[in-house]
């Protein structure tokens, strides 16, 4: 599996009067064509900031971006602003969370999508229009040739997100970053949009980075999962592997805290105690240790003093995690799984 996107030791730091906010601090991952990477984390974990860095959206702000982002062999961070702009929207495109605020209220849908095409192609306006109709049709907007004259407020939420997807895919990019693409939508519409994204990915062989807080969405969409906490990757590996054999207490917490449609309803939910850390003054050692209920199992003061390395886990080489626990697998099977999915305990033992 040849990775055509590799991110290596990416850091995005924002200097503020109170100190440096390390929104992303040493993030590394890779992604192959036609595959989907799910980035999971809570607000402030650095997932959106990192993906904006791939698009070069921090250029022109006071953010300090370092590390390496290689797309098809080119280090995007070394490109000039103009070279980066030429790739933006053409090779890398983005889909945003709230399609209403992400579309300009004063321009028609057609105009805004055509603009994305015209900026990268030297074609006539009517040719661009034909292409827009084709794309709108492709993403399932009925009567596309008429609806492209509508303004965003005349579209429903699901239609707007379809239009955003059409805009992102109109230049046939090799990488699409979808930042919480369905969070603002209803579940049945979410299902439509996720199906659409998968269809399009198959057709265009696009690589997708799917940023979300919803493990369910990741489970259905992603090939690989990267769990982020306080600007760092804390667990990374193939999706199914991470969801069935998670080895990092934060991932356990995410899995256990959300109720699902089959769990027993008699007990209490198992939340992660405390609140997400401040990125200005992140905790020492493992950033998760103040909220971690398993830190007693680690001898000494290790969790508080030393940041664990992102190391291969117990099952597979390509499953890495950042945790000091000596035998996470046993802890997961004996303490977490019985609450999470009691029906699975016997199978796995």
């Amino acid at each position: 599996m040849e990775a055509f996107l590799t991110v290596d030791d990416l850091k995005v730091h924002f200097p503020t009067v109170d100190g440096v906010v390390k929104a992303t601090d040493g993030l590394s991952f890779g992604l192959a064509r036609g595959k989907t990477l799910g980035i999971v984390g809570e607000s402030g974990s650095g997932k959106s900031v990192s993906s904006s860095a791939i698009l070069g959206l921090h250029r022109g702000t006071n953010a300090v971006v370092s590390g390496e982002i290689r797309l098809d062999g080119n280090n995007l961070l070394a490109l000039s602003d103009e070279e980066m702009r030429m790739r933006r929207g053409k090779e890398v495109a983005m889909i945003f969370q709230d399609p209403l605020s992400s579309l300009h209220p004063y321009f028609t849908i057609g105009n805004q999508i055509a603009e994305a095409y015209l900026v990268h192609h030297k074609v006539s306006k009517s040719a661009a229009r034909t292409r827009v109709v084709e794309m709108l049709d492709r993403v399932g907007i009925p009567q596309a040739d008429r609806r492209l004259n509508d303004y965003p407020h005349q579209f429903s939420g699901g239609m707007r997100q379809r239009a955003m997807i059409a805009m992102a895919l109109i230049n046939d990019p090799s990488l699409v970053i979808a930042d919480e693409p369905t969070t603002a939508l209803d579940v049945t519409v979410q299902a439509q949009i996720l199906d659409l994204l998968q269809d399009l990915q198959r057709d265009f062989n696009t690589a997708i980075i799917l940023i979300t807080h919803d493990l369910g969405v990741v489970a259905e969409m992603a090939d690989d999962v990267l769990v982020m906490y306080a600007g760092r990757a804390v667990e990374y590996g193939p999706c199914k592997e991470i969801l069935t054999h998670p080895e990092m207490p934060y991932t356990w917490g995410l899995l256990s805290s959300a109720p699902d449609l089959t769990a027993s309803t008699s007990g209490r939910l198992l939340p992660i105690p405390g609140t997400p850390p401040s990125l200005l003054n992140p905790p020492s050692g493992c950033p998760f240790h103040p909220r971690c209920t398993h830190r007693d199992k680690v001898p000494g003061d290790l969790c508080r003093t030393t940041l664990p390395e992102l190391l291969p886990g117990h099952h597979r080489e390509d499953h890495t995690k950042r945790c000091h626990l000596a035998d996470p697998d046993t802890v997961f099977r004996t303490e977490i799984l019985p609450n999470l999915a009691p029906e699975l305990v016997e199978e796995s033992s």
């Binding site: 579940v187 049945t188 919803d214 493990l215 369910g216 489970a219 699902d260 999470l340 999915a341």
Partner: peptide, 19 residues
């Protein structure tokens, strides 16, 4: 339509009724 972690993790996803 509700994405389900457990289902997806163990047995692929359930059949969705598309509206």
């Amino acid at each position: 339509a509700v994405p389900d972690v457990k289902q997806a993790a163990i047995g692929g996803r359930r059949e969705r009724i598309r509206l």
